[in-house]
Amino acid sequence: MTNADMTRQRFTGRVALVTGGGSGIGRAVARALAAEGASVAVAGRDAATLAATVTLIEADGGTAAAIPADVTVAEQVSRLVDTTVDRFGALDVAVNNAGVLGRPGPLADVAEPDWHTVIDTNLTGVYLCMKHEIARMRGRGGAIVNISSNIGAHGRIPGLGVYGAAKAAVSALTRSTALEYIGENIRINAVSPGPSDTTMSLRPGETPADRTARLAAALPIGRVGTLPEITAAVLWLAADESGFTVGHDLVVDGGATA
């Protein structure tokens, strides 16, 4: 994020909810939203990592609260959204980022529990979050950004079929739901990152340097994406400046899908 971006205050007076906010893209997005004036509810299953995100935000002068929740459990998602509104008074922006890669492997070798873990977290979690977020945004409007993946648009990475299927479904669900609620001034879009500088893109035992070297050769741009690059796309879709953008899946992957 540039110094110019840091001085912008596109979200002053607004309330944002970020799932999967304890690390990676979720933490970066939560910090960026707070830096631009939002009060941010940070959600996830690990209370310690959520607390660390809140500490970082508060150290930067922002406002945030950690709300532990498992996005695969309907009651916890309902409570998460209600707690966000009770704490900050509204819900204007939601970034549904919580996700898991799962255990890579050919489809015939995928155990049924592993299938359900990936589908439940990456797809059902987005459904549950949108369901309750939309209910709180009706009559007020708002912006929802779902974090999908470029893997949902191609099958060129062996062993990630379940993850790709879940993310393809997230992109499809984003488009259809966007059309259902744009008449109520609720804008719904998605961002599909490619390999980025997060722990999710690391293989077991691999160092970040090894990961970068492995992926650089496979990506047209010759490097992995940075968190500020992914975050900038998310914040643009959440901000008023993208007000004419509805049901869009913004691919940020260094040319991999192209």
Rank of each mutant, 00 (worst) to 15 (best):
T2P: 02
T7V: 11
R10P: 00
R10Y: 09
F11M: 13
G13V: 14
V15W: 03
L17M: 12
V18Q: 02
V18N: 02
T19G: 01
T19H: 01
G20Q: 03
G24V: 00
A30E: 06
A32N: 12
L33G: 04
A34K: 09
G37I: 11
A47L: 04
T53C: 11
T55N: 05
I57Q: 03
A59N: 15
A69L: 10
V71N: 05
V73Q: 13
V73D: 15
A74S: 14
Q76K: 05
V77F: 05
S78G: 08
L80P: 04
T83F: 03
R87V: 07
G89Y: 10
L91I: 13
D92P: 05
A94Y: 03
N96L: 14
N96Y: 04
A98Y: 01
G99C: 06
G102F: 00
G105K: 01
W115V: 09
T117D: 15
V118Q: 00
D120A: 03
K131Y: 01
H132S: 03
H132C: 04
R138Q: 15
R140N: 12
R140L: 12
G142H: 01
A143K: 03
I147W: 01
S149Y: 00
N150P: 00
I151F: 08
R156A: 12
V162D: 09
Y163L: 02
Y163K: 06
A166I: 02
K167W: 04
S171K: 03
L173Q: 11
A178N: 08
A178W: 02
I182G: 01
E184I: 06
I186C: 08
V191T: 12
P193A: 08
P195A: 15
T198Q: 06
T199H: 07
P208W: 13
P208I: 14
A209G: 15
R211A: 13
R214H: 14
P220R: 11
P220M: 09
T226M: 05
P228D: 13
P228R: 09
E229Q: 14
L237S: 11
L237M: 10
E241W: 07
E241F: 07
S242G: 08
S242A: 15
G243Q: 14
T245H: 05
G247L: 07
H248M: 11
D249A: 05
V251F: 04
G254R: 04
G255I: 11
G255V: 12
G255R: 13
A256V: 14
A256F: 15
